[in-house]
Design a protein around this nucleic acid. Structure first.
Length: 203
DNA sequence: GCGACAG
DNA sequence: ATCTTGTCGC
């Protein structure tokens, strides 16, 4: 992984060019959700795979040490490695779509964590963030940035920012979230926090 | 210079 | 993300 902010930004611009913002997959039957919880710089990462009926097929976890602090716009530096690490543990089943708890193309350089992970693994990926980072939401929900529609905000009370990670169109990404919600992410969130808590109660 | 700022 | 009590609303 790169070290300086300048190198990271340069890398993001290169990765952004490789993002395929259109549907490029067969069938989406299995969805994988990943999330990370922290205790200082110790990262507790969880990944779960569910079918379209939201039935759990596999669950794995991994503990790593974060090498970079959190910096807005450069979340990939802190969270990508833990995610790659935990995804390597998925062996009994494969997945068709990866759901990341972060922005995808709806990012200052069109390369949020979801894009970086998706392009690196070359997997259909969508980004679902819980808060705003950049761009302006139109009345219809689509979010524009630099004259482009790069994301969509869903939900009135609990707003979710959906954007393309890789090999999925924004329309499909939105359809997936509207149909299945973010259960994979919710379960991964619960598991990562449980993992962290379990470790903490361990003298 | 001032405000905004994923997890 | 994490630190944290009571409190407002469906």
């Amino acid at each position: 992984m790169t070290t300086t902010y300048a190198d990271a930004i340069k890398l993001q611009k290169e990765v952004a060019k490789k993002v395929v913002a259109k549907d490029d997959f067969g069938e989406i039957n299995r969805i994988c959700g990943v999330d990370v919880a922290y205790s200082g710089d110790t990262a507790y990462c969880s990944a779960v795979v569910m079918d379209r009926n939201l039935q759990l097929l596999e669950s794995v976890h991994a503990e790593t040490v974060a090498t970079h602090p959190y910096v807005s716009g450069l979340l990939m530096l802190r969270e990508a490695e833990p995610i790659f690490h935990v995804l390597k543990k998925l062996k009994s089943v494969d997945y068709d779509l990866l759901m990341v708890d972060a922005h995808g193309q709806l990012h200052p350089r069109k390369c949020g964590l979801a894009c970086y992970v998706g392009v690196t693994l070359d997997k259909p990926t969508i980004g679902v963030a819980k808060s705003h980072l950049c761009g302006t939401a139109r009345p219809d929900g689509f979010v524009e940035l630099g004259g482009e529609v790069l994301g969509c905000v869903i939900g009135k009370k609990k707003r979710l920012y959906v954007s393309v990670g890789h090999r999925v169109s924004l329309e499909t990404a939105v359809a997936i979230v509207k149909e299945l919600g973010i259960e994979p992410l919710r379960l991964a969130d619960i598991n990562s926090k449980a993992q962290k808590r379990r470790k903490g109660l361990r003298p």
